[in-house]
């Protein structure tokens, strides 16, 4: 008896594959209509607010969140900073930025040595390692240096141009002798007066503050300079011109130069300075006064007494 199921008409041979032809259900064409969900999603996407939020808001939020999470860890932050520092250093240490030579111009050997010693780093060094402003300030703080300019030239040369202060006067202080320039700024110390016999000497407390005035007085007193031993600042307000033979000219607080000129005029007229006195007081311009020395005074009194007697005799 045959079964109800028909026998397969074509038996499957070895090496053959069974292929099922499936007809597509709805006329063979895909339904072009969007599903309700797709339709709604597209409408949502076309809503301007949603669009703006998705295209700007969400990326910004995600990036901020990721950065925040990543940087929230202390160690990671330090690592990142270290890496950044490494990169910075590797760029700074490139040969293009290397400074290898240092030339100092216009400085005396002592100053040049000091300038070289003040350089904070060992050459060769990176240009970024030298704080030029601080270095400039350090050099300018030297007493002997009036002005300084620093230039880093291509090829790794650091040029320092120094203008030194010129000493014009000596200032004797209790601790020693200082050399001052024309505005009274200290340039260097001196152990012996003999080292600079060409410079005039001043003394007294606060004398350095009035150096310009002292220079004017000295210029005015040029004819008597061979006799002058120096100027002494008195009470930080006026000058005494000290001469040899223990003589002093007391100059006024105001217009000392005119007082000196007057002294010179008196000297020319009456040979004043060769007289035997200890003090010539010019402080009162109306009434110059002199103090005679003790022998001169005695002699003066003897002379004036003799004259009195002769007058009496003649009477």
């Amino acid at each position: 008896m045959r079964s109800l199921k028909a026998e397969p008409r074509y038996l499957q041979q070895a090496g053959q594959r069974r292929v099922t032809i499936r007809s597509r259900s709805n006329g063979g064409r895909r339904d072009p209509a969007p599903s309700r969900l797709a339709f709604r999603l597209q409408r949502l996407w076309l809503t301007p607010f949603v669009r703006a939020f998705t295209r700007i808001g969400v990326p910004v939020f995600v990036v901020t969140l990721a950065l925040g999470l990543w940087l929230g860890d202390e160690g990671r932050r330090a690592d990142a900073m270290a890496k950044l520092e490494d990169i910075k250093l590797s760029i700074q240490n490139r040969p293009e930025f290397r400074v290898s030579t240092l030339t100092v111009e216009g400085a005396s050997p002592e100053v040049e040595q000091a300038v070289r010693a003040m350089l904070p780093v060992q050459l060769p060094a990176s240009r970024f390692a030298i704080d030029l402003v601080a270095y400039h300030d350090t050099i300018a703080r030297l007493d002997a240096v009036k002005d300084v300019s620093l230039i880093v030239r291509t090829g790794g040369a650091l040029d320092i141009k120094v203008t030194e202060r010129e000493p014009v006067i000596l200032w004797r202080t209790p601790s020693g002798i200082e050399m001052l320039d024309e505005i009274g700024h200290r340039t260097a110390s001196l152990t012996r007066r003999d080292a600079r016999p060409d410079l005039p000497l001043i003394a007294g407390e606060g004398a350095d503050a009035a150096v310009p005035e002292a220079l004017q007085i000295l210029a005015a007193a040029k004819p008597i300079l061979p006799r002058a031993r120096g100027l002494v600042r008195m009470g930080e307000r006026r000058w005494d011109l000290v001469l040899d033979r223990d003589q002093r000219i007391l100059l006024p607080e105001e217009n000392p130069v005119q007082a000196v000129e007057r002294v010179l005029a008196l000297d020319a007229a009456e040979d004043l300075l060769n007289r035997d006195f200890t003090r010539l007081d010019m402080r009162n311009a109306d009434r110059p006064t002199i103090r005679l020395s003790a022998p001169a005074l005695a002699q003066y009194q003897a002379i004036s007494a003799g004259a009195l007697n002769s007058v009496k005799v003649s009477q």
Binding site: P32, P34, R36
Partner: peptide, 18 residues
């Protein structure tokens, strides 16, 4: 309804607005 959705969606897409 599906046909209306198709047409409206395509037109919206071209208009680039909802």
């Amino acid at each position: 309804e599906r046909a209306i959705r198709t047409a409206v969606q395509a037109a919206q897409k071209m208009a680039n607005t909802r």
